[in-house]
Amino acid sequence: MIKQGSEVTQMDKQQAKIIMAGFGGQGIVVIGNILARGCVIEDKNVTGMVSYGAEMRGGTANATVVLSDEEIASPYVVHPTHAIILNHPSLDRFEPELVEGGLVLLNTSLMQRDVERKDLEQIKIAATEIAHELGNLKVANIVALGAFIRHTGLLKMKSIEQGIGTLFAAKKPALVGLNLKALAAGAARSVFEPATAKASLG
């Protein structure tokens, strides 16, 4: 699915079904929004869905983004190809749902265990700790996004930077710089681990 350890600029002609999950307030919806903006910038087809329900602050939140070079059928994702997991409860919930040979990004700062499945590729990033070092816990989501983009190459880092620019420029222009810094830190300080067992084909 991804090329190990290198920055990939071209994705194969395929669909990525990405789920982002964490606590409410961790900025799950924001990174979904930035990813989708990146797709619009690169003229890819994209759909986004935010889980809606009787949600509350501190509860779990998730958003899905489907991106594709071809027409997207369902915006609703049951088995994601990629998961950006920002807290422990979300790992428990979504690890079993990932497709065989899928990729999971873990915010290791908030995990109490490793990934159990052997067929999953992993990106590990201490997103919350890095955000703390940067002086604002709220950018842990962007740190994770930086790591995700660097190792998956689903979109160009430049498109994500541009997406951050347009999202924050209108309401909070002062935050653009900090978020770009967080994005770069995430890209630089993440670790990729290949699957330990090969996914069976078919």
Binding site: N33, A36, C39, V40, N45, V46, T47, G48, M49, V50, Y52, I72, P75, Y76
Partner: peptide, 10 residues
Amino acid sequence: DGILGQMAEP
């Protein structure tokens, strides 16, 4: 329906 209303698309 709820999906059409809630989903985002360019």
